[in-house]
């Protein structure tokens, strides 16, 4: 048990070397900046579940602690991300999505609505409705109905 404890501490230490309290480094202000930093821990690229702004991996926590400390020192958001870019290279920066992000899906939805309206107009023939009953292509108007009326009625009686 004794050994278990020490090795546990050893393993856990890597992820937990920090002096700030947890609530401080998961505050909204810290998250706002952390969103612009991509996680560099490596394993995240595999499972894609690492949330930089609230994650617990070996990169996220120290990075957020660093952000918190920089904020305490009065640095602006830009200063902080610039600092990360100096340290890890420009690739670490994640920009905000442009307006294209939501314009394209909603634009497509609008186009879709137009297509549906076009479709409805194209196939909507209220006046022709009685004549278009010829479902299978045969000429079948009221006389055809008259011809098969008996059989249809007979079958209908069996429906329930």
């Amino acid at each position: 048990m004794r050994r278990g404890k020490s090795s546990f501490l050893l393993l856990a230490a890597a992820a937990l070397c920090l002096a700030q309290t947890e609530s401080q480094i998961t505050s909204d202000e810290v998250r706002r900046v952390a969103r612009h930093v991509s996680c560099q821990c490596g394993s995240c690229s595999e499972d894609a579940n690492c949330m930089m702004s609230s994650g617990q991996c070996g990169f996220c926590k120290p990075a957020r602690t660093k952000i918190f400390k920089m904020q305490q020192a009065g640095m602006s958001d830009k200063d902080i991300t610039d600092d990360f870019m100096r340290e890890y290279g420009p690739k670490i920066y994640r920009a905000d999505p442009s307006a294209l992000g939501w314009m394209v899906p909603y634009g497509t939805l609008m186009i879709g609505v137009l297509v549906v309206i076009w479709f409805v107009r194209r196939y909507y023939h209220p006046a022709a409705a009685p004549a278009q009953a010829a479902a299978a292509g045969a000429a079948a108007g009221d006389d055809a109905l008259g011809k098969y009326k008996d059989q249809i009625e007979q079958d209908l009686a069996h429906l329930d």
């Binding site: 009685p130 009953a133 045969a138 000429a139 079948a140 055809a144 109905l145 009326k149």
Partner: peptide, 16 residues
């Protein structure tokens, strides 16, 4: 009525 007409159409097709 529409459905019955459609049905008659199918029956006519069967006969054809």
């Amino acid at each position: 009525l529409d459905l019955q007409k459609e049905l008659a159409g199918v029956m006519a097709e069967i006969d054809r």
